[in-house]
């Protein structure tokens, strides 16, 4: 089955002062796949994430989601268009409970304003119920039932990572961008994460995954792209990537011919 391209990244270039962080990146992400983005530290993976999600403006290039150009839009409109993200260094709303964190994620798909909040008319009550139900089911989905009433900052590391995913899913994304979700996880947590990611893919959400755990990426991703010093040096199936000499050089060192 040939899958349709959902996200098109074309010619994205980013310079900070004189430093070229990314140069002419082209990526095509197909709907329903797990797309892995790997590369050594400082290769520009997170910078690319920040451009896609509207945190940085690219110097050049564009990014389309389902043929709608999102480049240079503010972050909240990008989320609304269907791209959600997590952060490499977990950024939860610390004093809020797990459930409340996920409820915040529903913000973008709901619209009760000040008047509704104060009067709490029927529509507002129903929407609030919907938010709560959705948040609870997402908490359940990522397997956090036991600790959803705790303040987010008190959760264990692995739970915080999963809560971030639940929060991102609450925005009802078409593509979810995960920035090193397995970082700092123990093997049990990593295997739970793998199951979760497979489940998300089965539910039709495309995943863009930055990860250092090469084993996880190779076992999970449908397509993998490799960045090195801001340049895409390879793209292909995991097995193609594994045998690509450029990739081996980038990871193991040595001169590029």
């Amino acid at each position: 089955m040939k899958k349709k391209i959902i996200a098109e990244i074309s010619d994205i270039t980013k310079t900070f002062g004189g430093l070229v962080a990314l140069s002419n990146i082209d990526l095509n992400i197909k709907g329903g796949e797990i797309f892995g983005l790997i590369g050594p530290n400082g290769a520009g993976k997170t910078t690319l994430f920040n451009i896609l999600t509207g945190m940085y403006r690219p110097t050049k290039g564009f990014f389309k989601l389902e043929d709608v150009e999102l480049t240079r839009l503010p972050p909240h409109l990008i989320v609304k268009a269907g791209l959600a993200r997590t952060f490499q260094n977990i950024r939860l709303f610390g004093t809020m409970t797990g459930l409340e964190n996920v409820m915040v994620g529903c913000h973008v798909r709901t619209n009760i304003g000040v008047v509704g909040a104060i009067l709490r008319h029927k529509g507002a009550r129903q929407e609030e119920e919907r938010i709560k139900d959705r948040a609870r089911s997402l908490i359940d989905y990522v397997g956090l039932n036991a600790s959803s009433a705790q303040a987010a900052s008190t959760l264990s590391y692995g739970d915080q990572r999963r809560l971030e995913i639940a929060r991102a899913l609450a925005t009802s994304p078409k593509v979810i961008a995960l920035d090193e979700p397995a970082a700092g996880m123990n093997p049990t947590e990593t295997s739970q994460l793998r199951e979760l990611l497979v489940k998300i893919r089965e539910d039709g959400i495309t995943i863009l995954l930055i990860e250092h755990d090469v084993k996880l990426v190779m076992g999970l991703c449908d397509t993998v792209a490799v960045l090195d010093y801001g340049i895409k040096i390879a793209e292909g199936t995991p097995s193609e990537i594994k045998s690509n000499p450029e990739v081996i050089r980038a990871y193991l060192g040595g001169d590029v011919p």
Partner: peptide, 15 residues
Amino acid sequence: VAIREDETAAQAMGI
């Protein structure tokens, strides 16, 4: 509250 806790994350949640 989300903005108070982490403005960047709040933006990233579509606020």
